[in-house]
Design a protein around this nucleic acid. Structure first.
Length: 659
DNA sequence: GGTGAGCTTCTTTAC
DNA sequence: GAAGCTCACC
């Protein structure tokens, strides 16, 4: 445990009751959690199987697992739980599925599936954001673990009453589909634990010490779940930073940090205020910025590092210019300062901003890794295969059936499906069962009936095959037998695009090889829980990601692009009074940087094909001017950089000819 | 019932 | 500047 400072040491060694660790950015919080796990196990206080650490992302869980493995040797860590909230909830429901009134193989609905139900229930004719806002309200109620009845009572507007009514119908629909959504992965375990003291006691017997990372990101349901698991004794360590609360929009209550002191009067609070990450100037920028927000917990981050480089503020003509400058600077720093590619990060507010940057990086042949955005799971063919897996595991999953039946096309379209849905509803059958019903098939056109029949036969064959095949083999079989692969081949005009899409399916199969889990249902569930940002390990490559995805990471050089009013802070957030959260987002971005920080903005961006003028972010004005170096207006620097870019460009072209 | 042309709308952030 | 939707046509 050597090398810990005294508050860190205190946080690690304090195991007598509930502890809140207020950990500033870069204060060694992951280290503290890892050391504490090692301490709990190593000191013999708890066996590993009775210790659980909970994070928000799989990425964080994976990193913690790796660090614990390095720290705790041998099999001493066996049985240790390091899991995300949602994976823990899933595991709980898989064990307790009967109490939750779920059948084995239940599906997990993602946000898209959720939207599908909402659209279906509300009927056509509304605007997209009307559906989205209703979906959001339903989700919000569930995040607070309200029942539909409670949501109705708590409703303060006509819209919220409408949402509560929708919530009731939505939940019936989910039940009929033998499905849960992301919110239910928390809500259902919680309601079961609260309703059944024996069950709760049993789980507390298993989890005797609890560690929670990013506690400021918990929503109401998650917070209550923690309390259930920790029990009245409160054997837990919560780690959080209210200044890095950036998920209020999806229901997080940073006030939960304060609630802890109310719910546990013997709560011990430890502050970690020494920053080991950022240079002096970078840290000063961060502190000055965040001081503009009101604070419940006063925290003063300090560091022993020297001032370091100035923080650069770049005024660019447009986002292409901005991207060129960023790429050029990275190219230059790599050579001149010997910073490896993997130590650069380019951070942005919205995922769509990555495209220009990718182009600029490609031009200079800079290797990069994009996390998030329209990634793997959003690819049509992957979603298709996933729907098939869901149908195989869960015959009640109508949403998956509707996608699988039309991919590939088999002469079953909207008219047939509408008729089938009506008959299914009359008979209280899921769609896949209705499609097997001879009497019902007779009422459809022969062509459509034949298509449904063929589908049913393939599903049954694959279901049988699933008994003996490995997940990866099953996925391959599925691609073949469903006709998915053939359809893709027929659809693709050139060989290259066919291969690219086939590769996605192969990647899905190979991903399943690494995953434990039985049967298609568990596979599909695991995949749904893997966030976009978690997929694929980046190597020594420049990292491109959203500011949200960057939390918890650090880099020697960080570029925050698109620092314009309207983008960062985002106009939606400004309208909805979310300025403080936007400021925290900027704070998170700034504090990712160890040595070099660049904040850039464009005078003009193209939006929906139109040109739009933008002003620099108000947050830039809130930074200490003495630590900034503004350029872009400076013609001499511009021309130097232009030369730099020109040279890099020539190198890139030369490299093209070499390869 | 499937297909493609032309129209709209859309952009936060994510488990 | 793309994805998604509607409508006309096969």
């Amino acid at each position: 445990m050597s090398g810990l400072n005294s508050p860190q040491k205190l946080a690690v060694e304090y195991t007598d009751g509930p502890l809140l660790v207020l950990a500033g950015a870069g204060s060694g919080k992951t280290r503290v959690i890892t050391e504490k796990i090692a301490h709990l196990i190593g000191s013999g206080r708890h066996e590993a199987k009775h210790v659980a650490a909970i994070t928000f992302t799989n990425k964080a869980a994976r990193e913690m697992r790796e660090r614990v493995a390095k720290r705790v040797k041998g099999d001493k860590a066996e049985g240790l739980t390091i899991s995300t909230f949602h994976s823990l909830g899933l595991k709980f429901l898989q064990i307790e599925h009967e109490r939750a009134k779920l059948r084995r193989g239940f599906s997990i609905f993602d946000t898209d599936d959720q939207m599908g139900i909402v659209k279906d229930l509300l009927g056509p004719g509304l605007k997209n954001d009307a559906y989205e806002s209703m979906r959001g309200l339903v989700s919000r109620a569930k995040n607070e673990a309200l029942s539909p009845e409670q949501a109705l009572e708590a409703a303060r507007s006509a819209r919220e009453r409408e949402a509560a009514a929708l919530y009731a119908k939505y939940q019936q629909r989910l039940q009929a589909f033998n499905a849960v959504d992301f919110d239910d992965l928390i809500r259902l375990p919680l309601t079961l634990l609260e309703a059944e003291p024996d069950l709760a006691a049993g789980w507390r017997e298993r989890i005797r010490y609890l560690l929670v990372d990013e506690c400021q990101d918990t929503n109401g349901a998650q917070y209550r779940l923690l309390k259930q698991l920790a029990g009245a004794r409160g054997n837990m360590t919560c780690v959080g930073d209210d200044d890095q609360s950036i998920y209020a929009w999806r229901g997080a209550n940073p006030e939960n940090l304060d609630l802890l002191a109310v719910d546990y009067p013997n709560l011990k609070v430890v502050k970690l205020e020494q920053n080991y990450r950022c240079s002096g100037r970078i840290l000063r920028c961060a502190n000055t910025l965040i001081a503009k927000n009101p604070h419940a917990h006063l925290k003063q981050l300090w560091s022993q590092h020297g001032d370091g480089e100035n923080v650069r503020v770049w005024a660019c003509r447009n986002n292409e210019h901005e991207a060129e400058r960023v790429a050029g600077e990275i190219h230059y720093l790599k050579q001149a300062k010997d910073i490896p590619w993997g130590e650069f990060a380019i951070l942005f507010r919205g995922n769509h901003q990555s495209r220009v940057l990718e182009k600029a990086l490609q031009l200079l042949r800079i290797p990069y890794h994009l996390t998030g955005g329209t990634a793997f799971l959003d690819r049509g063919e992957v979603k298709d295969a996933l729907s098939w897996l869901r149908v195989l595991a869960n015959p009640d999953d109508d949403a998956a059936f509707l996608r699988a039946i039309t991919s590939p096309k088999r002469e079953v379209g909207g008219t047939t499906l509408a008729k089938l849905a009506e008959m299914a509803q009359q008979a209280h059958l899921p769609l896949s069962k209705a499609a097997e019903n001879i009497a019902m098939l007779k009422q459809l056109t022969p062509r459509a009936a034949a298509g449904l029949d063929e589908f049913t036969r393939i599903v049954h064959r694959l279901r049988d095959a699933a008994e003996t095949l490995t997940p990866a083999e099953l996925t391959k079989q599925l691609a073949e037998q469903s006709g998915l692969l053939a359809a893709i081949r027929a659809q693709c005009k050139d060989e290259a695009s066919y291969l690219r899409r086939k590769e996605n399916l192969d990647e899905l199969a190979s991903w399943f090889e690494a995953v434990k889990g039985n049967g298609p249902g568990e596979l599909a569930a695991q995949l749904a829980l893997l966030s976009h940002a978690d997929r694929g390990e980046p190597g020594n490559e420049v990292r491109l990601m959203s500011l949200h995805a960057a939390k918890g990471l650090e880099f020697r050089a960080v570029f925050v692009v698109g620092c314009e009013d309207g983008n960062l802070p985002h106009e939606h957030a400004i309208d909805e009074g979310g300025l403080e959260e936007e400021r925290r987002l900027m704070y998170v971005g700034i504090t990712r940087a160890k040595e070099r920080l660049y904040l850039s903005h464009s005078a003009e961006i193209k939006r929906w094909g139109e040109h739009q003028h933008l002003l620099p972010s108000r947050f830039i004005d809130e930074l200490p001017a003495g630590d900034l170096q503004r350029d872009g207006a400076d013609p001499e620097l511009e021309s130097v950089q232009k030369k730099e870019r020109g040279r890099a460009h020539m190198d890139a072209i030369a490299a093209l000819f070499d390869s």
